[in-house]
Structures are given as structure tokens and as C-alpha cells.
């Protein structure tokens, strides 16, 4: 990123290669929309270029990236008031089927769809923290920096989010 900041814009391609999938999945889980997420990824990378002078290097690049992503996301959800995970179930079940192994039963497939549904029903705040910790595989410490909070607070939040997700899931399963 420092090289990008110094004017080597081609290095941005490298960063894109490394992070765009993660970023996409984060935005996908937060918005539930394919094309919108792609737009947002584009937006995040554009902001990286535009605001590259604000990258101080104090935090990690990843932290900075998620900061930008969250800003972009906030702008986006402000424009599209409804921010519930707006899943296209058919589309998503297709994904799951194609991604699942041969021995996976329809039952299992159904379970995953339910889970996905549950995630969509989770509050945005909890969904975000689970996405960051489970899907983005970030450490509590990193999440704390992204959310400008303490590690302890993240821990509590993850715990509560997991609990709620589990409850929603069990409810839907019945």
C-alpha cells in the first residue's frame, strides 16, 4: 500500500488480487446482493486510490480496507434503506448445490439454506461481527481495531451473536 501511496498505482492490482475475494464475501454477506457487492468492492478500491494519502500505515492495510468497506457499506445502506440480508434463495441454493460434495444430502443442503436464512435475520451489528470473525477469519484484535473497540467488547459481541444465530437457526429448523 505504501508503494501505491507513493504513486505506484500498478501495485494496486496486487492488493486487488489479494483482497478482493475477501472483500466481496464480506460485502456479500452484508448486503446479500451479488451485483451490488461487486459495485461496492469497486467502490472500496476506488476509495483506496482516492484516499491513499490517508493511509498512515499505523494500522494494518486490512484494517484500513475494512474501514473503507464499512464506510462504503454505510453509504450504500443509507441509499437502500433496507439492509436485511436480501438473499435470492434460489440463487443461493444453486450455489450451495454446486459447491457441495457428492455425498451431501438434500437434508444438509436444506440446513445450510436455513443457516443462511438465519444469518439474514440476525441484526446487522451481529451479522457483521460474525462475518468478520467466521468468514473473514480475522482475530478479535483485528476486529477490535476495525470497529474501534476493545478486544473484550468484540469477544462479548461474538458470543452474543453466536447465541442469537443459534437460537434463530434452531427456531427455523423446527
Amino acid at each position: 500500500m505504501f508503494q501505491v501511496k507513493a504513486g505506484d498505482l500498478n501495485k494496486m492490482g496486487l492488493l486487488f488480487e489479494r483482497y478482493h475475494r475477501k472483500l466481496f464475501s464480506f460485502l456479500y454477506y452484508m448486503t446479500g446482493k451479488d451485483d451490488a457487492s461487486e459495485d461496492l468492492v469497486q467502490n472500496v478500491f476506488f476509495r483506496m486510490l482516492k484516499y491513499r494519502h490517508t493511509f498512515t500505515g499505523e494500522g494494518e492495510f486490512k484494517t484500513w480496507m475494512y474501514h473503507l468497506a464499512r464506510n462504503v457499506l454505510a453509504d450504500h445502506s443509507q441509499k437502500n434503506k433496507r439492509s436485511v440480508l436480501h438473499e435470492d434463495v434460489q440463487n443461493y441454493s444453486d450455489r450451495i448445490s454446486s459447491g457441495a460434495g457428492a455425498d451431501d444430502s438434500i437434508y444438509k443442503e436444506q440446513e445450510l439454506i436455513t443457516l443462511y436464512d438465519s444469518l439474514g435475520k440476525l441484526s446487522e451489528e451481529y451479522r457483521e461481527i460474525l462475518v468478520l470473525s467466521r468468514f473473514q477469519e480475522l482475530k478479535y484484535e483485528e476486529i477490535a481495531r476495525i470497529l474501534n473497540t476493545t478486544e473484550g467488547a468484540v469477544k462479548v459481541k461474538v458470543h452474543r451473536a453466536m447465541n442469537q444465530l443459534k437460537n434463530i437457526y434452531l427456531k427455523l429448523e423446527q
Binding site: Y29, D34, R134
Partner: peptide, 30 residues
């Protein structure tokens, strides 16, 4: 067990993948 199940299943959720067009768009933007 319930929590673990949910957690495990979360891990099994397929990672959403962006379309190849995104990279092209990014490069154009860059």
C-alpha cells in the same frame, strides 16, 4: 452442540465468489 453445529455449518457455507467481470472492471477503473 447446537452452537458447534451452527459454527461448523457456517464454515461449510460456500464462499461467495465475485464474477470475473469484476476484475476487468477494476482494471479499467485503475
Amino acid at each position: 452442540q447446537a452452537m458447534q453445529q451452527v459454527w461448523m455449518q457456517m464454515g461449510q457455507l460456500p464462499v461467495p465468489k465475485p464474477s470475473p467481470a469484476m476484475k476487468i472492471r477494476f482494471e479499467a477503473m485503475l
